[in-house]
C-alpha cells in the first residue's frame, strides 16, 4: 500500500474553502474530501521529477515590455445600475462589512 502523504484534512478543506469564499455543506465536505485526496494523490506523481535547476515557464512566449500610451479613452457609457445586481444611487450596494 502506497503511503498517501499529501492527504488534505477536512479541516484544511474547510479553511481553504473559506479562503476561496465558497460555503460548503457537510455532504459536500465528505464528497470533496474523498475526491480531492484522490486527485492530490495523483498529482504527487510530479514528485518523481528532479526540477532543482530548472526555471519555471510562467510565460511560454518570450514577449516583454508590452505597454500602452497614457491616453484617455472613453469609460463605460452604461449606467452602473444596468450592470450591478444591487445599487443605491450611483453606488454599488454591498453587504455590511462588520
Amino acid at each position: 500500500m502506497v503511503e498517501r502523504k499529501k492527504a488534505i484534512s477536512k479541516e484544511q478543506i474547510e479553511s481553504i474553502a473559506w479562503l476561496a469564499r465558497i460555503e460548503i455543506s457537510k455532504k459536500e465536505l465528505e464528497l470533496f474530501s474523498r475526491q480531492l485526496n484522490d486527485i492530490l494523490f495523483y498529482f504527487s506523481k510530479i514528485d518523481e521529477v528532479n526540477t532543482k535547476s530548472i526555471p519555471p515557464s510562467y510565460h511560454v512566449l518570450d514577449l516583454v515590455n508590452v505597454l500602452r500610451k497614457d491616453e484617455v479613452k472613453p469609460s463605460l457609457s452604461e449606467d452602473i445600475s444596468q450592470i450591478a445586481p444591487q445599487t443605491k444611487g450611483k453606488f454599488v450596494k454591498a453587504p455590511r462589512m462588520a
Binding site: 450611483k90 450596494k93 454591498a94 462589512m97
Partner: peptide
C-alpha cells in the same frame, strides 16, 4: 467604500 455611519454599525456598504 463608504458607510452609513461607521463601518461597524452600517447595515450596508456603498462602493465606488
Amino acid at each position: 467604500l463608504s458607510y452609513e455611519g461607521t463601518i461597524e454599525s452600517s447595515t450596508y456598504t456603498l462602493v465606488d
